[in-house]
Amino acid sequence: MSSKQKQKNELRTDKKLNVYAVLTGLSAGIINGVFGGGGGMLVVPMLVHLLKCPAKKAHATAILIILPLSIVSGIFYAAFGNFNLEVGIPAGIGVILGGTVGALLLSKLSSKWLTIIFCVVMAAAGVKMLLF
């Protein structure tokens, strides 16, 4: 392959990856805005499969993507009068404490069974909210 052709191919892949990047951002944003969370669970597989990011890096990179989105969405939700300090402050303190524990636990527990249990709990909560 001539170097000119090679350059052309690289440019094409580059463009394709930029389109995937925009798609990833758009999907993460819409989920984050409508549902106030859960965007990360969408971003991680998109980073891995579309943008060929290694799984471990994808988890960390997802936080960098979701953080600005949560700040923007949080400001809009608060401006619409949806934030409630009575719930927000105790829950926020809990999240920080729990988050530290979770990050420390991560290296110690096998996550396969934990993920499966979590899926069952999530599905049960989902069915309850969807139907009842």
Binding site: I93, V95, I96, L97, G98, G99, T100, V101, G102
Partner: peptide
């Protein structure tokens, strides 16, 4: 918050 935070810290989607 603690329950959600633990899962979030483990990267399993606390929200």
């Amino acid at each position: 918050g603690v329950l959600g935070g633990v899962l979030g810290g483990m990267g399993m989607g606390g929200g």
